[in-house]
Nucleic acid binder design. Structure first.
Lengths: 227, 227
DNA sequence: CGGGGGCTTGAGGCCACTCAACGATAGTGG
DNA sequence: CCACTATCGTTGAGTGGCCTCAAGCCCCCG
């Protein structure tokens, strides 16, 4: 394992309350924390699912690969998100840390044992699975029918909503990650962002252009023809 | 409503046993049957979800529309499939009958009332939602990263598995439906099928080329580069 | 300070799209 | 029973949006 234990002083902004439990309320569950270095794998596709994860800090990408290396990222997971929840016993994505990332993890078997007698917990699992489904359904529309500009605009709006909701956006992932999320190439991502900057919809701050973006959400939605 | 009641003599090949219940075992649930004429809408996106549906015969398409008419079909539902199950109170797709279709329906509220005290039922709902999620995840990979030939091959393999599992396939949907499912155009679908026929992977029987296809599953998987 | 990763930008190419024509079939109404 | 029309599918010709390939810059980091 490339993982290593994190100091207990790590931020704990949120608990596993989405599961209707905490370590305090149910001592049979051990909530451990790990950190993963940028680029390291958290688990692989088709591996047995031992844990469920919650992002504490950092960002995680979930992806599938074709045999020749083509990659489709199905989701990015940001702080508070829960991932790795599988109904069958095996993971259906490979996940990696996009940047140095801290996660809290819970043993799958203990989760299932409790779910057996806890209707509220199962309902929470159902709700989370349905949320993931909704995201995937929206993403199918994007991948199947939207233009490159619409995809990039939708991506920025999604990240703005999930990361900050403030119009100032620190993107943790590379152009290649974005491309593999949107079904495009990194060059197309770069060109689209440059074009949005030319139009004044985006501004890059920080002399390194990559990370921080100021966006005009109003103008951006014009580029993403919604439903 | 464009629907009309079906005669009680309609085939009842399968029950709602996926819900862990039947009308006999739980008389508080009324399982009604309806038929929909080819092309008619079953429910619209964002409508309140009143019913959950099971296909008895025929085929249903679930889709989302962009404002300019671009359409993405998220799934086809064939006999035995359950659709319209929403975690929130509103449908997230529009659904239409691809051909004349008979469905069995169950009131959502009665389902929820029973789920309240029935852990096995909730687990079934979770399982079905997870199955839908898995399909959507695989479809994202197809839409984001596969070539037209790979998509068409994957489509034929999926339909062969779900409709017959026999190598002889009666496709109920049009080229346009297939195109909107695979994120392509109808012309590209037609050309891909013609090409597969030239190669001897497919044969059309029935003088109308549309409906019945004999396929060589072995050869087809060569065209769909899997994971 | 050398190397590698990430980003941008340009030039050219190709896969899927667009536009168009045509044939076949099913449904409709006189 | 037969136009008439609409729908569906196939195929060809040409286009274009995104991809591929390449060069160069910047920054980080050993």
């Amino acid at each position: 394992m490339l993982t290593h234990l994190t100091p207990t002083s790590l931020p704990r902004p949120h608990s596993f309350s989405e599961f209707g439990m905490t370590a305090e309320s149910n001592p049979s569950i051990n909530l451990n924390e790990f950190t993963y270095r940028r680029g390291s794998e958290i688990y692989g596709e088709k591996e047995p699912a031992q844990y469920v994860y919650q992002v504490l800090s950092g960002t995680v990408r979930s992806y599938k690969l074709l045999s020749d290396g083509r990659r489709q990222i199905g989701a990015f997971h940001v702080p508070r998100d829960i991932f790795g929840l599988e109904n069958g016993g095996f993971h259906r994505f490979t996940t990696e840390a996009v940047v140095d990332t801290a996660v809290r993890l819970i043993k799958r078997e203990s989760l299932e044992a409790i779910a057996e007698n806890d209707g509220a917990l199962i309902k929470n699992l159902l709700f989370m699975t349905a949320t993931n489904l909704q995201h995937a359904e929206d993403h199918m529309l994007l991948l199947g029918r939207k233009t490159s500009m619409e995809r990039v605009a939708a991506f920025l709006i999604e990240m703005d909503r999930r990361l900050t909701a403030a119009g100032i956006l620190a993107l943790p992932m590379t152009r290649r990650d974005i491309a593999d999320y949107l079904g495009l190439t990194l060059e197309t991502i770069s060109r689209s962002l440059s074009y949005l900057r030319e139009l004044g919809v985006l501004r890059f701050i920080d002399n390194n252009q990559r990370h921080v973006v100021i966006m005009d959400r109003r103008q951006l939605v014009e580029f993403d023809r919604q439903t």
